[in-house]
Simulated scan of single mutants.
Amino acid sequence: MDLVVEGLRGFGRLFLHPLTYFFIMVAYFVGLARVKRERKHFHVRIFDFILELKYLFFPGLLIGLVLSVITLLLGTYLSIGTIVVIGVITFLLSGPFTFRWLSPAFVLGFAVIAALLIPEGGLGTGLIAELVMEAKNMHLPSIVIILALLLVAEGFLIWKYGHKGTSPAMVTSKRGQQVGAHFAQKLWVVPLFVLIPGDAIKAVWSWWPVLTVNDTTFSLFLVPFAIGFSQRIKGMLPIHSISITGKRVLGLGLFIALASVAVFFYPFVSIFIVAIAIFIRELITIQQRMTDDNAPVFFSKRDSGLVILGIIPTSPAEKMALQVGEVITKVNGIPVSHVSSFYEALQANNRAYCKLEVIDENGEIRFAQRALYDNEHHELGIIFVQHHQKRESEVEVG
């Protein structure tokens, strides 16, 4: 019962941790940058600036609770110096416009590399020297176990939640043309309870919980780990491309989890496992980019119909259940192939009614229809890509 109570208190203290507010700040500014890009490309905001904040703590808190039980049962522990180094690496990898490097493979992997680069004599004096030496002597098997668990969490989060709220954008193709693409930007906070050897924390805060395991004293500490994800997609639907990435990262996490069994018998292999995790995680990103660059552009002008590049939330288009990647071939029975003809057909015949003939991702024809209210025929909330021969490509909003 004491552990349960302290666990609940620990989650409450999560919002006293400086890294938590740093993650909120980073997600906020990434959201502002995304809104600025959307307005520049489309002259309209697709998602509000708090989109990234909506996913910051969910489902990361629940996943962190499950992983904390596993880490405590396995007896993994981190020193204060190790936690400080992980925090510094996290801060350095948190770029102003992307979550590209906030994978556990890079954060924990670079923390291990930093520890290996610390000279035997240490650095600094006093408290700094003590923390540096603790980082130098970090418990590598515990790092590998936590790395494996967080990689599994990363793969699951990307697979199940990475495709939600992808932001449409304009990019330049290999032929120098402006084509449609989608950007996925996610940051999840996964808080883990870890054991810290000794009772140094209790010496500062007398109320801090202390455990004794096999005559060894440990303090219970909550560390907010950040898992970031960033991916550009232009060669297929975002949900399919991101799902592939998530499953690959999940596979990497399971592989590292199996390999981590070896560290209980041969601790020195921890360094090789961490290096493999860094290499394969980066390889997954490179492979996705190369595959996407070599694939035919999915969001581009077609000879027949208009490809839906984006849907504005709460718009009539969303209420009509239109989906990104679907192709609108007819409006009110009139074939369309340009945004201008879409507008004209939308106002033809009965202006208070809209009937769209749509080809879904399976190549099947379906119809989407609804009554239109004042001004809605100009504001359905559909983002199209419209090309012009003698001027810079534009994006039209239908």
Rank of each mutant, 00 (worst) to 15 (best):
369 Q>D: 09
121 G>M: 00
128 I>H: 11
126 G>D: 13
82 T>V: 12
334 I>E: 14
132 V>C: 05
298 F>A: 14
173 S>Q: 06
303 D>N: 15
397 V>Y: 00
352 A>Y: 14
383 I>T: 03
228 G>C: 06
162 G>S: 03
352 A>Q: 09
59 P>G: 02
347 Q>H: 10
232 R>T: 06
369 Q>F: 04
230 S>W: 07
171 V>L: 11
382 I>E: 03
288 Q>H: 14
280 I>Q: 04
140 L>V: 11
164 K>V: 15
252 L>C: 09
54 K>I: 06
191 P>W: 03
229 F>I: 05
385 V>Y: 00
132 V>I: 07
338 H>I: 14
167 S>T: 09
389 Q>M: 12
296 P>H: 14
165 G>K: 01
59 P>K: 00
188 W>E: 05
75 G>D: 00
285 T>G: 15
220 L>W: 00
319 K>Y: 15
159 W>T: 13
310 G>T: 01
160 K>H: 15
90 T>Y: 12
169 A>I: 12
358 V>D: 05
337 S>N: 13
129 A>P: 08
191 P>M: 12
345 A>H: 00
67 L>R: 01
247 K>N: 06
305 G>R: 08
66 V>T: 09
128 I>L: 15
298 F>S: 06
349 N>F: 15
346 L>G: 05
182 H>Q: 10
130 E>T: 14
180 G>F: 08
205 W>K: 09
188 W>R: 03
263 V>G: 01
113 I>Y: 04
122 G>Q: 08
189 V>L: 10
169 A>M: 15
363 G>H: 04
180 G>E: 04
165 G>E: 13
34 R>E: 13
318 E>A: 10
220 L>Y: 00
267 P>F: 01
255 F>L: 14
282 E>H: 10
368 A>T: 07
15 F>N: 08
111 A>L: 06
280 I>S: 04
146 I>L: 03
384 F>I: 11
33 A>K: 14
67 L>E: 00
396 E>S: 12
356 L>R: 13
248 R>K: 10
24 I>S: 08
175 R>P: 00
147 L>Y: 02
214 N>K: 10
376 E>M: 11
30 V>R: 12
252 L>F: 11
124 G>E: 12
159 W>L: 11
188 W>T: 07
259 A>R: 09
308 I>F: 06
46 I>Y: 01
336 V>K: 03
266 Y>H: 05
55 Y>Q: 09
372 L>E: 01
17 H>M: 07
43 H>Y: 13
361 E>S: 14
87 G>P: 00
143 I>V: 14
369 Q>C: 13
21 Y>N: 12
192 L>C: 03
140 L>H: 01
91 F>Y: 13
132 V>G: 03
99 F>N: 10
298 F>G: 08
260 S>F: 08
387 H>C: 09
272 F>E: 05
382 I>G: 13
22 F>E: 02
124 G>S: 10
76 T>R: 03
66 V>G: 11
197 P>W: 02
165 G>Y: 01
341 S>R: 12
383 I>F: 07
245 T>W: 05
387 H>M: 14
170 M>V: 13
379 E>V: 06
87 G>H: 04
76 T>V: 07
342 F>A: 04
160 K>C: 10
190 V>C: 06
259 A>V: 08
394 E>K: 13
383 I>H: 05
359 I>N: 05
168 P>Q: 11
132 V>E: 03
267 P>I: 02
375 N>H: 09
113 I>N: 01
155 G>I: 11
